[in-house]
């Protein structure tokens, strides 16, 4: 998909649009830059993101990382707050089960994630907007790949329907 490229995002130049539905969703996403919050654990996913930077692996600037000590700390409130404040997608990235720094943290994250998924599904938030992945500190390239793929998924989905509520006083995550 070429829409990833901001400058060529004009849907009229897409040659193969077969039906109006795709056409509309493209129109909707024209010029749309997804805002994505990634909760990354201190011991695996965050160093992976760091490693991606050090190795100069490109990943989209749409991803705004929030470092947490452990993926198991990410409760439904974290994810819901991100959506409430206008995030278009939320990524929770933890260690693999086998090498979780706190042994059970990644498992806990996976359990809690199931609850969060059920809540967001009930709210009518598309399930593609929420993603859990396991990225070890040695997997910088995986981090870059996941970040890219997730950003593209969200770009295709278009902006989240949720309007930022006036009492969400915290700074909203903005792309320039």
């Amino acid at each position: 998909m070429r829409q990833g490229d901001k400058k060529s995002g004009d849907s009229t130049i897409m040659p193969n649009s077969k039906n109006t539905v795709t056409q509309q969703s493209r129109d909707k996403t024209t010029g749309f830059e997804p805002k994505i919050v990634a909760f990354c654990c201190n011991w695996c996913s965050y160093p992976a993101a760091d490693g991606a930077g050090v190795a100069r692996l490109q990943y989209p600037t749409n991803i705004k990382i929030v470092r947490v000590m452990c993926g198991g700390r990410v409760t439904p409130s974290f994810v819901l707050k991100a959506f409430e404040l206008g995030a278009d997608g939320v990524l929770v990235a933890t260690c693999h089960f086998e090498d979780c720094h706190y042994m059970f943290g990644a498992r806990k994250a996976a359990d809690v994630h199931k609850i969060t998924e059920r809540l967001t599904a009930m709210l009518g938030i598309e399930k593609e907007r929420l993603k859990l992945d396991w990225i070890s500190s040695a997997e910088a390239s995986k981090f870059a790949r996941v970040a890219k793929e997730f950003t593209e998924t969200i770009r295709k989905l278009g902006p989240s329907a949720i309007k930022k509520s006036p009492y969400a006083t915290d700074e909203i995550i903005e792309n320039e």
């Binding site: 409760t75 409130s77 819901l80 707050k81 409430e84 949720i162 309007k163 509520s165 009492y167």
Partner: peptide
């Protein structure tokens, strides 16, 4: 309580 999860649910519902 609960990190504000209930309040977030409610505010999201204002959409």
């Amino acid at each position: 309580s609960h990190g504000g999860a209930a309040q977030s649910l409610m505010r999201i519902m204002t959409t």
